[in-house]
Simulated assay, not measured.
Amino acid sequence: MKGKPMKKGASKRLTPKQRAELKSLASLRDNAIDTSDAPEFLDWSGAKRGLFYRPVKQQLTLRLDADVLAWFKSHATSDEGYQTRINRALREYVQQQVSRGRRSRA
């Protein structure tokens, strides 16, 4: 489903019973919660940072030079489209500028 827009839908409302259960759980002290069925996980070697992070996107119209756009389109893959690559290139540029600004102020 990569590349297809996600449909925004309304979440189902909690039932009064579910609300009451959440309220009672929230009032428990940490040491009163039984976590024996959830052992501590110590090996994070296969973890992927930012896997579920989805920054807020804003739609806009942007004019780019035809050759620049052609380059990004020609380097698109089935895993990553040209717009994603353009966004990543812009983000890397912004991060470089921010880090340069920090160094020049120090």
Rank of each mutant, 00 (worst) to 15 (best):
Met1Ser: 07
Lys2Asp: 06
Lys4Ala: 15
Lys4Leu: 15
Pro5Leu: 07
Met6Cys: 06
Ala10Ile: 12
Leu14Trp: 03
Thr15Asp: 01
Thr15His: 03
Pro16Phe: 01
Gln18Glu: 12
Arg19Ala: 11
Ala20Leu: 09
Ala20Gln: 09
Glu21Gln: 10
Glu21Pro: 00
Glu21Ala: 13
Lys23Arg: 06
Leu25Thr: 06
Ala26Lys: 11
Ser27Arg: 12
Leu28Glu: 02
Arg29Ile: 00
Asp30Cys: 09
Ile33Glu: 04
Asp34Phe: 03
Thr35Trp: 02
Ser36Met: 04
Asp37Asn: 05
Pro39Arg: 11
Glu40Asn: 01
Glu40Lys: 07
Leu42Cys: 08
Leu42Ala: 12
Trp44Cys: 11
Gly46Gln: 15
Arg49Ile: 07
Gly50Cys: 11
Leu51Val: 09
Phe52Gln: 04
Phe52Ile: 04
Arg54Ser: 07
Lys57Ala: 15
Gln59Leu: 04
Gln59Arg: 13
Thr61Arg: 09
Leu64Gln: 02
Asp65Val: 05
Ala66Asp: 02
Asp67Ala: 12
Val68Gln: 08
Leu69Val: 00
Ala70Asn: 08
Phe72Tyr: 11
Phe72Leu: 10
Ala76Val: 08
Asp79Met: 08
Glu80Phe: 05
Glu80Tyr: 10
Tyr82Arg: 06
Gln83Arg: 02
Thr84Arg: 10
Thr84Ile: 12
Arg85Met: 12
Arg88His: 10
Leu90His: 01
Glu92Trp: 05
Tyr93Val: 03
Val94Leu: 13
Gln95Cys: 14
Gly101Cys: 11
Arg102Pro: 00
Ser104Tyr: 09
